[in-house]
Computed example of a mutant assay.
Amino acid sequence: MNKVHNYLAGLGGAIALNVLHESLKKKDSDMPRVDLLGEEALQKTLQHFGTRIDDKKNLYTATLAGDIISNTMFYGMIGNGDRDYLFTRAIAYGLAAGVGAVTLPKQLGLDEGPVAQTNKTKALTVGYYLTGALVTAGLLKLLSKSSK
């Protein structure tokens, strides 16, 4: 598939993931807070270089931008390979990202609570990443039809 299409679709998946997260994050206390995990990860990375972001709005914006860029690149890889397995790859990538988001924070020295507080939080976290991957696959399917 076309690399431009891969990244456009990946951007669509990343945006879908973030719209879903931002829309639901304050609905109840069990909702995933991927934003808080990202902010902690960014601050710890910056501290390694002797700096930090003190303004909460700037921290949120930088984290959101990094999240969209990294998820665009990750989801963009779904388009690599045989088109017959596009949705299979999307499911595998989405599950891998979601399970990674739930299981890796503790191993990386981050607070896992925002994404793994309860079984509901864990399931929703995985579901969000799966949704982004499936949106990416759907967009890739549409883009491949439009280029024929």
Rank of each mutant, 00 (worst) to 15 (best):
M1E: 07
V4A: 13
A9Q: 09
G13D: 00
I15C: 01
L17Q: 07
N18H: 10
V19G: 09
V19E: 08
S23D: 03
K25Y: 04
K25W: 02
K25M: 07
D28T: 10
D30L: 00
M31Y: 01
P32S: 05
G38C: 01
L42T: 05
L42C: 03
L42F: 03
L46K: 04
Q47D: 14
H48T: 14
T51H: 06
D54K: 11
Y60R: 08
L64E: 05
N71F: 12
F74R: 05
G76E: 07
D82Y: 06
D82W: 08
R83M: 11
R83L: 10
D84T: 13
Y85I: 11
L86C: 06
T88M: 13
A92C: 09
A92W: 10
Y93V: 15
Y93D: 07
Y93M: 12
A97V: 08
G98S: 07
V99Y: 04
V99L: 06
A101T: 14
A101I: 06
A101F: 07
T103I: 14
P105D: 02
Q107H: 06
L110Y: 02
L110R: 04
E112K: 05
G113P: 03
G113Q: 13
K120T: 15
T121S: 05
K122Y: 07
A123P: 10
A123Q: 11
L124P: 04
T125E: 07
V126E: 00
V126P: 01
G127D: 12
G132P: 06
A133Y: 08
V135Y: 11
V135W: 05
V135L: 10
T136H: 10
G138P: 11
G138L: 12
L139Q: 08
L139F: 03
S144K: 13
S144R: 12
K145M: 14
K148V: 15
